[in-house]
Design a protein around this nucleic acid. Structure first.
Length: 835
RNA sequence: GCGAGAGUGGCGGAAUUGGCAGACGCGCUGGACUUAGAAUCCAGUGGAUGAUGAAUCCGUGUGGGUUCAAGUCCCACCUCUCGCACCA
């Protein structure tokens, strides 16, 4: 669509002066330059004003942005601009999560260095954002792939290492065969790589871990402090941490000097144990198996190891087990219990062994059925006795067949069971978490090198702080081989031991990019600091982040890791707060043609196209108008047309209102009063919508109502009779209210009509409660709950008067033939006559 | 299976938390302006029965309940979305 530069006469009916046509293409670059030249987005490091740190999740620069990404920045910008007008010193920074696999993969494909590929994208994205007029303080821009940044990522690694929170071990780890690297637990979804969807396999590797499990309890309990977080995100984190309370119980093995420890949340079912099962990986398996069964066991285990781990433990797979030929002794009743290896037991959870209670656990039930094991009921429901079980019973009841504990109510008296077990020294109360330590090693090139050296004499030696950063070499053959490409780079790998000075080898793995993003919100405070990642006093002023905005896909990964790193740095004395994000807002995605936007599906809507056609202001407002911002929304091409029309209407109405010659008398009739009330109702609504939530959609609809009302006022009242003063006030306040949403439009009209500096530095307008009052109010009148009439009464009418008026209405009389049984009057709201 | 959330016109969505259901926008219909189109403006628009009116009835996933009054609260159910999923 081409827009010509001709002048257009909008005021034919009113006969007023000429009004220029709305030209976003000239207006928007003009104000973007103005803001930049006058440093209007720059934050002062300190100020007497209250601070407000508004952070939108930084993007991974994988290419150009689509309108889905833009939503995040637009929401953030609207709030940032609003808060500035509210008198806050606002920190609103931007940067790039610039390390990561896509850069490496793209680089391999296109034969370009990942750094160059990343920076090309960064430049594109920066331009895209600037064209939207987002008010970022660009002087604080950061990229996690720059040496000046990853130096401090490495520093954080060292701090964790010193604190004993970073350790290396050989472990069975999740391996993505496509990405050719190991993955953290959080990065595996339903057995597949979270990034590329390839089914994950297991690999035994020496890997670095962060001991996030040490923080499991605090990460869980501090969620209660986060009032400003959406409940569902907290729930997801709680589930992920997965705390459960139970007991550890030891079962002696008959004929061996061995005990099997199990963890159970249902110690009350201890008397119902009819078998024990070990994870195939459990070291106890080898020790317990009867010598003559060894061969059979080996073939069973071989079969298990062929089974994919994620398939093996998925709900659908059939339970499989192998009897080891030995028995354990139930410590509560001395019964002999057969010991099995079973595919459904996980080595990583609990002790890698379970007690099997088929009557009260469905998995154990299935296993027992298959291997013909006893099923012994020990919890009896109140309603009816359990006879032949069709499936396991896991409901409430009382303990039976359980010796001294018979009659104990479950679950209400479960504590009695714990106490009994501890008294008898059979078991002890234990807390278990599902959360695993965070695997941070990645066998790829494009990340921050792990700052560690391996010395034949000294072992693992951390690089000393003064030698940071351990620079990522540029001249690397980065084809993925399953080993870090740094392995093949002699210049990088070969070094000397920082401790003894002898030849040594560097760690060649790089860090998970989630480490980079788990502290970036701190770096924005002192982005140029050379000798420290951040300054404690500055960070204490700005943090915690007052409002964090991003996608819900980070509910666990990024948000949990960031909380963890913050707590570690707090414990080490670098921070004065232990939660990074006070308020969190998760915005919904924008869909197109029923699917998430993605390049591969070819359904992306480019913000550049929209800015070209309609302008940034229209795009911004449309994104905010689509629906509640926390919900997903479907992109609609004609929806944006509607907002474009609205923008033009604002342009015309403000222009028209200001071109009227100000000679009209002060005219305050019904029309004018209505208009004033509308203005103040709008001020109230927009303020509440921006203050009390993120209700941009209803704020915009309220602005539309104001514009409609003003347009129809001008339509209705001939020019000589129009109240210029009111129209001027409406124009001014309308512009102020719309400026966080459509800043270019607001600036341009402000400069054309009001001319008092940038609209950015104006105060947010307040509404006047008195202006909302009316002389008459409308009261809906119901008969038996059905609306029959609406009466108008003076605002100060008392109840009797209103009732009398209602009853005297002809429409009401029709329905009220007998005398009413009851009349309910809700003050100022409604009247209901019951007959 | 467990946990969280949601079901309102042709569509996106409003509804002061129990008080006029459908704000606002899209779409559609009719009209004005125009040589014509685009753009813009005005009017109408939940469904049904009326004659264009007045008017009446029905209507917020389904069925029940509480209440003078229910989209909103309670009980049961259905559907959809998301998260976790053999975690002992």
């Amino acid at each position: 669509m081409k827009i010509s530069l001709r002048w257009y006469n909008f005021s034919q009916q009113s006969g007023g002066g000429c009004v220029s046509r709305y030209e976003h293409k000239t207006i928007e670059p003009k104000w973007q330059n103005y803001w930049e030249k006058n440093d209007l987005f720059k934050t002062s490091q300190r100020s007497s004003l209250p601070k407000y740190y508004l952070l939108t999740m930084f993007p991974y620069p994988s290419g150009t942005l689509h309108v889905g990404h833009v939503k995040n920045y637009v929401i953030g910008d609207a709030i940032a601009r609003y808060k500035r007008m509210r008198g806050y010193n606002v920190l609103h920074p931007f940067g790039y999560d610039a390390f990561g696999l896509p850069a490496e993969n793209a680089a391999i494909e296109k034969n370009i260095h990942p750094y160059n590929w990343t920076m090309e994208n960064v430049n594109i994205i920066r331009q895209q954002i600037k064209k939207l007029g987002i008010s970022y303080d660009w002087s604080r821009e950061i990229s996690t792939c720059e040496e000046s940044y990853y130096k401090w990522t490495q520093w954080i690694f060292l701090k964790l290492y010193e604190a004993g929170l970073a350790y290396r071990k050989k472990a069975a780890v999740n391996w993505c065969p496509k990405c050719m690297t190991s993955l953290a637990n959080e990065q595996v979804k339903e057995g597949a790589c979270e990034r590329c969807g390839t089914p994950v396999t297991m690999k035994h590797l020496h890997q670095w871990f962060f001991k996030i499990t040490d923080y499991a309890e605090r990460l869980l309990s501090d969620l209660d402090k986060l009032d400003g977080w959406p409940e569902h995100v907290k729930t997801m984190q709680r589930n992920w941490i997965g705390k459960s309370k139970g007991a550890t119980i030891s079962f002696p093995v008959e004929g061996l000097d061995l005990k099997i420890e199990v963890f159970t949340t249902r110690p009350d079912t201890l008397w119902g144990v009819t078998f024990m099962a070990l994870a195939p990986e459990s070291p106890l398996v080898e020790q317990i198996v009867q010598p003559e069964k060894r061969e059979q066991l080996a073939s069973f285990l071989a079969k298990m190891s062929l089974q994919d781990k994620y398939k093996r433990i998925s709900t659908e797979s059939e339970k499989e087990g192998f009897f080891l030929g030995r028995y354990a002794v139930n410590p509560v009743n001395g019964e002999k219990i057969p010991i099995y290896v079973a595919n459904y037991i996980l080595m990583e959870y609990g002790t890698g062994a379970i007690m099997g209670v088929p009557a009260h656990d469905q998995r154990d039930y299935e296993f027992a059925k298959k291997y013909n094991l006893d099923i012994k009921v020990v919890i009896q429901p109140h309603e009816k006795a359990l006879n032949r079980l069709e499936r396991a019973y896991d409901g409430d009841g009382i303990m039976v067949n359980s010796g001294e504990l018979n009659g104990t109510e479950i679950p209400t008296q479960i504590e009695k069971v714990f106490t009994w077990l501890e008294d008898k020294k059979i078991g002890k109360q234990t807390i278990q978490y599902k959360l695993r330590d965070w695997l941070v090693s990645r066998q790829r090139y494009w990340g921050a090198p792990i700052p560690v050296v391996y010395c034949d004499h000294c072992g693992i030696v951390p690089v000393s702080e003064k030698d940071l950063p351990v620079k990522l070499p540029m001249d690397v053959e980065f084809l993925p081989t399953g080993q870090s490409p740094l392995m093949l780079n002699k210049g990088f790998r070969e070094t000397v031991c920082p401790r003894c000075g002898r030849k040594a080898g560097r760690e060649v793995d790089t860090m998970d990019t989630f480490v980079d993003s788990s502290w970036y919100f701190l770096r924005y405070v002192n982005p140029d600091q050379q000798d420290a990642p951040f300054l404690k006093e500055d960070v204490s002023y700005w943090l915690p982040v007052d409002q964090y905005i991003g996608g819900v896909e980070h509910a666990i990964l990024h948000l949990l890791y960031s909380r963890f790193i913050t707590k570690v740095l707090y414990d080490l004395g670098y921070l004065t707060f232990d939660e990074p994000f006070k308020n969190l807002f998760t915005q919904g995605m924008i869909w197109k043609d029923g699917a998430k936007m993605s390049k591969s599906k070819g359904n992306v809507v480019s913000p550049d196209d929209m800015v070209e056609r309609y302008g940034a202001d229209t795009l911004r407002m449309y994104v905010l108008f689509m629906g509640p911002p926390e919900k997903d929304a479907e992109w609609n091409d004609s929806g944006i047309e509607g907002i474009y029309r609205f923008v033009k209407r604002v342009w015309n109405v403000v222009n028209k209102a200001s071109t009227i010659t100000p000679t009209q008398p002060e005219n305050l009739g019904e029309n004018e009063k209505r208009l004033i009330r509308k203005l103040h109702a709008c001020l109230k609504k927009v303020t509440e919508d921006l203050e009390g939530g993120f209700k941009f959609n209803t704020a915009i609809s309220s602005l539309m109502e104001l514009v409609n009302e003003t347009t129809s006022y001008m339509e209705k009242v001939p020019e000589p009779k129009r109240n210029t003063r009111i129209l001027k006030e409406i124009s001014e306040k309308l512009l102020l209210m719309i400026s966080p949403l459509a800043p270019h439009l607001a600036e341009e009209l402000w400069s054309l009509t009001v001319k008092k500096g940038s609209i950015m530095s104006q105060k947010w307008p307040e509404y006047d409660p008195k202006a909302l009052q009316t002389e008459e109010i409308e009261i809906p009148v119901q008969v038996n709950g059905k609306l029959r009439d609406i009466i108008k009464v003076p605002v100060d009418s008392d109840e009797e008067k209103i009732k009398a008026t209602a009853l005297s209405s002809d429409k009401i009389k029709k329905f009220v033939t007998d005398s009413p049984k009851k009349i309910i009057y809700v003050k100022g709201r409604l009247i209901n006559i019951v007959v």
